[in-house]
């Protein structure tokens, strides 16, 4: 099916009605399997039982970036291809992505307390995610600043693209800043060699959370389409009364 066909709200509604429960069920199954496997896995020799937070924290970190990337692609769709669903997808990605980014920060902080002895460390990775969260908040507040969803969509698309270009620069400079201010002795987790007993549960639960994201994203898109339809109806109604 060509992408432009999805612009038809009825076709999208039909597709969403099938896909949302499908992704939801997939998410429930995969997250369940992944977490049960994760909780059965032996504790990490360095992290101990705290490694159990990894099964949610790492997927949230991946999803934060993936949702921002999705938002940037949707922004291209708005500005370049002018696909009518693109800004709806962008708004939904910002809303759901911000929630996952927030969860990444909170779980990271709760993981950090026993590991580092404090709730917050200006670790380059946590700091980059924090800046990403600020970028999400900027896009969301820009969405709220306009009454007209079409103009809000184009404004948010430009901001999302500028922000996306900035993400690698922020990452680079935060890494540099960290190397200046902190000796390399800060304990690091997420070693590149991860034991299969932990890797498989991680990948399965990550797949589950991606499915959950897909379900929430589609549901938020469907809501946004309904909201716009309601807005159009209300404007028509007002025009009718005036006439």
């Amino acid at each position: 099916m060509p992408l432009i066909d999805l612009a038809n709200p009825h076709r999208f509604q039909r597709l969403a009605a099938v896909l949302i429960p499908l992704f939801g069920a997939l998410a429930a199954a995969l997250i369940g399997i992944g977490l049960v496997m994760g909780f059965r896995a032996p504790p990490d020799y360095q992290q101990g039982e705290m490694v159990k937070v990894m099964y949610i924290h790492v997927p949230f970190a991946w999803l934060s970036l993936a949702a921002y990337t999705l938002m940037a692609i949707a922004a291209l769709g708005t500005i370049v291809w002018r696909h009518p669903l693109a800004d709806v997808a962008g708004k939904a990605a910002a809303q759901v992505g911000a929630a996952f980014c927030f969860l990444c920060l909170v779980t990271g902080s709760l993981w950090g307390r026993p590991t580092w002895g404090t709730y917050w460390v200006w670790d380059p990775r946590l700091t980059s995610v924090l800046v990403l969260f600020l970028l999400y908040l900027g896009v969301l507040s820009l969405w709220r600043a306009f009454d007209d969803p079409n103009r809000a969509g184009r404004a948010a698309a430009i901001l999302a693209l500028v922000g996306f270009i900035n993400v690698p620069i922020v990452k680079f400079s935060v890494d540099w800043w960290n190397s200046i201010h902190q000796p390399a002795s800060v304990s690091r987790f997420g070693t590149p060699t991860i034991d299969p007993s932990m890797l498989y549960p991680l990948l399965i639960s990550a797949a589950g959370f991606f499915a959950l994201f897909a379900a929430l994203h589609l549901a938020a898109m469907r809501n946004e389409l309904l909201r716009r339809r309601a807005r159009t109806l209300r404007i028509l109604k007002a025009a009718e009364v005036e006439a």
Binding site: G48, M50, V53, I56, F60, L110, P114
Partner: peptide, 20 residues
């Protein structure tokens, strides 16, 4: 079985469940 830091693990999962 969750070790000495069970509170933090449960808190992380709790916040996740609540937010989602």
């Amino acid at each position: 079985n969750l070790g000495p830091h069970a509170n933090f693990i449960l808190a992380a999962y709790g916040v996740t469940a609540l937010t989602l």
